[in-house]
């Protein structure tokens, strides 16, 4: 049985290297009966399209965005709610909760999407051309580049009080250089990748979003494997997620240091409480969520 593992990152990205290890281990432990082929760089399609191929029954594993599963099970997008978690441990507790188990069962039912595990894909920060930001009032009026996805646009509008500006990622560099936008938001590694630090003076450690990403496998494919092989795939996926998360957290710290050494001013004394206090308003933009979802999630995380 061949499984194709698709993701959007480059071949040298930590997702790909951890997936290579996973593929080698699965092949070894199943005596080559189950093989995993890697397709990095969006070769088989973008996140939403990979998720759709999985729901249509493709023999795939995808490292995709939470939002693409939310197309089928709307409640899923609660996982990447801005200003939700104090740290990754809290997120892991939440992801292990009954609430999430219930959502995963729905995804398997409704969309043929089996979530194997979740990884820490990055921590997103705000960065600006020339404005120091510590409170929501500081970020008011900034035009901030975001993906044209509701949870981001609402966050910029309701929490940061800025103007959400969608723009293709490769265009952001020159847009910052020319002042077409005042700010953007991304994990430090992505900022370095595009050299945005050359035209952005301040990195604000808002940590506004913990980018949690699932490894999703076609449920029909997973269920067609023998219980023994299912266990092997599940174990190796868990190990891969673990590896990816560790690499991701290390890359955050390393990225911040690198940005500082390249002359960016790192602002760490951010009033996250003030931002978080405004974040509740985002939930209003999701009438499709089940009743009280946001409050239940907050309760679980606070425990």
């Amino acid at each position: 049985q061949t499984i194709r593992f698709a993701h959007m990152n480059s071949p040298t990205h930590f997702v790909n290297t951890a997936a290579e290890t996973m593929a080698a281990n699965v092949a070894e432990r199943t005596n080559g009966e189950v093989t995993i082929e890697l397709y990095p760089s969006g070769q088989l399609g973008e996140n939403a399209q990979i998720t759709e191929q999985i729901t249509l029954g493709g023999d795939l594993i995808g490292q995709v965005g939470v939002g693409t599963i939310a197309d089928y099970v709307p409640d899923f997008s609660i996982i990447v709610y801005p200003f939700m978690y104090p740290d990754f441990e809290a997120a892991q507790r939440f992801l292990a909760s009954d609430l999430i188990k219930e959502l995963e069962a729905q995804a398997e039912q409704a969309a043929n999407a089996k979530v194997l595990c979740y990884l820490h894909f990055g921590v997103r920060d705000l960065y600006t051309r020339d404005r120091e930001v510590r409170t929501p009032d500081d970020s008011a009026g900034l035009s901030i580049r975001v993906q044209p996805v509701t949870i981001y646009t609402e966050m910029v509008e309701k929490v940061m009080q800025g103007a959400p500006t969608p723009m293709p990622w490769p265009e952001v560099y020159s847009a910052l250089a020319q002042g077409v936008i005042d700010a953007a938001e991304a994990p430090p590694s992505a900022i370095l990748d595009q050299s945005h630090q050359e035209h952005a003076r301040f990195l604000i450690q808002t940590n506004h979003m913990l980018d949690i990403s699932p490894l999703v496998m076609s449920a029909s494919l997973f269920n067609s494997l023998s219980p023994e092989y299912q266990a092997i795939v599940q174990e190796e996926a868990d190990a891969a997620c673990q590896n990816m998360s560790e690499a991701s957290m290390a890359s955050y710290e390393g990225g911040i240091e690198e940005l500082a050494s390249q002359g960016m001013t790192i602002i760490s004394d951010v009033d996250r409480e003030a931002f978080a206090a405004r974040a509740g308003a985002i939930a209003e933009a999701f009438p499709e969520w089940s009743e009280g979802l946001y409050d239940r999630a907050r309760e679980i995380i606070a425990q």
């Binding site: 759709e52 729901t55 969309a111 509701t150």
Partner: peptide
């Protein structure tokens, strides 16, 4: 058939694909 089976959304407009 693809139209009948898709569940994908166009995120910026929040309409079905």
């Amino acid at each position: 058939v693809l139209i009948l089976r898709t569940g994908m959304q166009i995120s910026s407009m929040r309409i079905s694909a």
